[in-house]
Each structure stands twice: as C-alpha cells, then as structure tokens.
C-alpha cells in the first residue's frame, strides 16, 4: 500500500481494479462508449478524491461506479439488464423449461426472469453478490449501510428469489443448474442488438 497517493499509487490502483470496475459497469450499462466514460469517471473521481479514499478501495470504487451508473441510467432511462432481459424473456412456466433441452441459456433466462420479478432493491443486492462477488461487508460499503443490514437485506432477497424460483421454475433442479453453470451460455449478447 502506498503511503503517498501519487501517480504511481494511481497506476497501481488502476491496474489492480481496472477489470473489476469495467465488469461492474459493463453489467449495468449497455453501450461501450458509455461504459468507457463511466469507468474513466470512476477512476478520475478516485484520483480527485484520493486523499479521502479509504482502504481497501475496492468497495468504494464500486460505490462510486454504482452511483455513476445510476446517474447515467437516470439520464438515459434504460439499463443494461433490462435490455438483456427483454431480449431473452421466456415464458416462465414449467412447460417452457421442460420442453427444451437442458441449456445454459435456459437457466440464464430463468435467472433473468427471477431478477425481473423481484423488486429493484432485491435484484440489485443479488447482483452485487452473485455477479460482482461482493461479500456483505463490501455490499454494506457500496450501499452505505451497516454490514449486518447488508446481511439481512441479502438474506431476504435470496429468500424471495428462492421462492420465485421454486414457484415459477420448479423443474430447474440443482443438478440442471449446476450443469448449466458448467456450460458456456450459447447465446451471444451484443449490447447494441
């Protein structure tokens, strides 16, 4: 850890968190130009406020990224996930799952549908945990809440997701999901589709 937050410190910060931030923003925005702008702004903000940036910086960078993505989506009035979901929306019935071969994209579609059926708050915290790999203490930083609160909120979101999953996709057994997780998703999503 650098004691002096100079350009060398920033270069280290950038290289060690570049992929993380790019992926985080890419999950939430659709277009590459927008993603590039927001990621740049995240790091520029970190540089601008480097003296007050806490350590470890990871959750705080994502906190900045989350707010900038929200701001961006508020302005653009669309989000990456909704674009994805609309492209792949499936009939959330047992038959729809049963009548198709086991395919990773089916499970992914089901997961997207579950996220769609959840409240925005539940969906977001699940994405932070499942997509971005944040633990409750990091989620707490991103949200600006206590770690315990993040745990409770995540727990309840998981419970609600499980309920929807069991009610709407009862045939998506653990084995099928495990199989799907092991396979690459065949459908290729192009953010500009």
């Amino acid at each position: 850890m650098h004691s002096i937050k100079d350009e060398s410190w920033f270069a280290t910060l950038f290289e060690s968190h570049r992929v993380l931030v790019i992926q985080f923003v890419s999950r939430r925005l659709t277009y590459d130009d927008d993603i590039r702008d927001v990621v740049s702004e995240v790091f520029a903000t970190a540089w601008e406020q480097r003296e007050s940036l806490p350590y470890p910086p990871k959750p705080f960078l994502l906190m900045i990224a989350r707010k900038l993505c929200q701001k961006h989506n508020d302005q653009k009035t669309f989000s990456g996930l909704s674009a994805v979901s609309h492209l792949h929306t499936v009939d959330p019935t047992i038959e729809a799952v049963e009548n198709q071969a086991i395919d990773a994209s089916i499970v992914a579609d089901a997961a997207r549908n579950v996220l769609e059926m959840l409240s925005d708050a539940d969906a977001e915290i699940l994405k932070l945990a499942a997509w971005d790999g944040l633990d409750p203490s990091e989620i707490a930083v991103v949200y600006g809440i206590t770690s315990t609160a993040a745990r409770v909120r995540l727990h309840r979101a998981k419970t609600r997701a499980e309920k929807i999953l069991s009610e709407r996709f009862p045939d998506l057994t653990e084995e099928r999901i495990d199989l799907a997780r092991a396979k690459p998703v065949r459908k290729v999503f192009n953010g500009r589709s």
């Binding site: 992926q23 890419s26 999950r27 990456g80 996930l81 994805v84 990773a104 499970v107 992914a108 579609d109 089901a110 997961a111 997207r112 579950v114 996220l115 699940l126 994405k127 945990a129 499942a130 997509w131 998981k158 997701a161 499980e162 999953l165 998506l172 999901i177 495990d178 799907a180 997780r181 998703v185 999503f189």
Partner: peptide, 11 residues
C-alpha cells in the same frame, strides 16, 4: 440461489 443468479451475469 446466488449461483443460479450468477448464470444471468451479462459478463
């Protein structure tokens, strides 16, 4: 359920 949600990761 997090593993299930992870399958919808756009990345």
């Amino acid at each position: 359920v997090l593993e299930f949600i992870a399958t919808a990761d756009p990345m």
